[in-house]
């Protein structure tokens, strides 16, 4: 147990944009409870420069949280060619949805594709499981 354990990890403000993924969808058709569905849904893709700034490497675990929820995700580098600092991407699913606010300003349409979160490095936690989400 090192001293670092008691230090708070710095947090970075990000917008998460969700999108579809045919492989996750295929896995979902087979089973919502399968490993592949969970693996693909719980990845957050970050801008390369953002990763450097946060001290996060591909495969590291990160905590995304806001007033709606908190999930531990696996960080991966974005596959996009252009830089997109401040924006991260996630495949639409229960992990991303855990961070979506219930308040819709009365419209009835939650902000599924524009989720503001604080992101920090995780300290020895595991990726949030589906069971923990329900």
């Amino acid at each position: 147990m090192g001293f670092g354990q008691f230090l708070t990890e710095p947090e970075f403000k990000l917008i998460i944009v969700t999108h579809r993924d045919v492989f996750q969808n295929t896995a979902q058709e087979n089973s919502r409870f399968g490993e592949q569905y969970a693996e693909r849904s719980s990845v957050i893709r970050l801008d390369k420069d953002d990763m450097k700034k946060m001290g996060v490497k591909a495969g590291d675990l990160v905590v995304a949280k806001n007033a709606s929820g908190r999930v531990v995700l696996k960080a991966e580098s974005s596959t996009l060619e252009q830089s997109h600092p401040g924006t991260a991407f996630m495949i639409n699913g229960p992990w991303a949805n855990a961070l979506v606010a219930a308040d819709t300003g009365g419209t009835g349409v939650p902000a599924f594709k524009n989720i503001e979160v604080m992101l920090s490095r995780s300290k020895g936690e595991k990726v949030t499981s589906l069971a923990e989400l329900i």
Binding site: S31, S68, N97, L99, A101
Partner: peptide, 26 residues
């Protein structure tokens, strides 16, 4: 439960639910 925002999914789970579906889901 999978497609709604987390806080709403939690609220929905508190009332009696009936699911009609070919497959098991959340």
């Amino acid at each position: 439960l999978a497609s709604l925002p987390g806080p709403l999914a939690k609220k929905l789970s508190k009332i009696p639910l009936i699911t009609i579906d070919p497959c098991e889901n959340l």
